[in-house]
Computed example of a mutant assay.
Amino acid sequence: MAATIITTEDLIEFKKELLEEIKKIFESQTTTQNKKWLKSAEVRELLNISPGTLQNLRINGTLSYTKIGGTMYYDHTDIEKLLNGNKVNALPVLFK
């Protein structure tokens, strides 16, 4: 089995690459969170729901939306309110 020698320069290069990858991950997450208006596909991905479930949320008035042309937009704050309004508090488990 051959030994591989790792130099200080190798470690510095690895650190730079690792930091760049971490930056990319954070940037992709913050752009979705900072957007005021989300399209249907983004909302479905965010909530992990099907197109039919999103349609039901629109129809029964649970989630408001704005329609421009054929595209529906959802306010990010409305989605947060929906999630916070349906929060379920977990009851503590009592042991006997």
Rank of each mutant, 00 (worst) to 15 (best):
A2C: 06
A2I: 08
A3C: 10
T4F: 06
T4Y: 10
T4H: 09
I5H: 06
I5Q: 04
I5C: 02
I6P: 00
I6L: 11
T7E: 04
T8A: 13
E9K: 04
D10G: 01
D10K: 00
I12Y: 07
I12M: 11
I12F: 09
F14M: 08
K15N: 01
K15W: 00
L18F: 14
L18Q: 08
L19Q: 04
E20A: 02
E20M: 06
E21S: 03
I22L: 14
K23M: 04
K24W: 03
F26E: 14
E27N: 12
E27S: 11
E27A: 12
E27L: 13
S28V: 12
Q29T: 03
T30R: 08
T30V: 14
T32F: 04
Q33M: 14
Q33P: 00
N34I: 11
N34D: 10
K36R: 13
L38A: 05
L38H: 05
L38V: 10
K39G: 04
K39Y: 01
S40V: 05
E42L: 05
V43W: 01
E45P: 01
L46P: 03
L47H: 02
N48I: 13
S50Q: 02
P51D: 07
P51F: 10
T53C: 04
T53G: 03
L54N: 11
Q55V: 11
N56Y: 08
R58I: 13
I59K: 14
N60W: 07
G61D: 14
G61Q: 13
G61S: 13
T62M: 02
S64P: 15
S64L: 10
T66A: 07
K67M: 12
K67Q: 14
G70E: 13
G70M: 08
T71K: 11
T71I: 15
M72I: 12
Y73F: 15
Y73N: 02
Y74L: 11
Y74I: 15
Y74M: 04
D75E: 09
H76I: 14
H76K: 07
H76D: 06
T77V: 11
T77Q: 12
T77M: 03
D78G: 08
I79R: 01
I79Q: 05
I79T: 06
I79E: 06
E80C: 10
L83Y: 06
L83E: 04
L83Q: 07
N84Q: 13
G85T: 09
G85N: 11
G85F: 14
N86M: 03
V88R: 05
V88E: 10
V88W: 00
V88F: 01
N89D: 14
N89I: 15
N89Y: 14
A90W: 00
P92F: 05
V93S: 06
V93A: 08
L94Y: 13
F95L: 10
K96W: 10
K96E: 04
K96R: 10
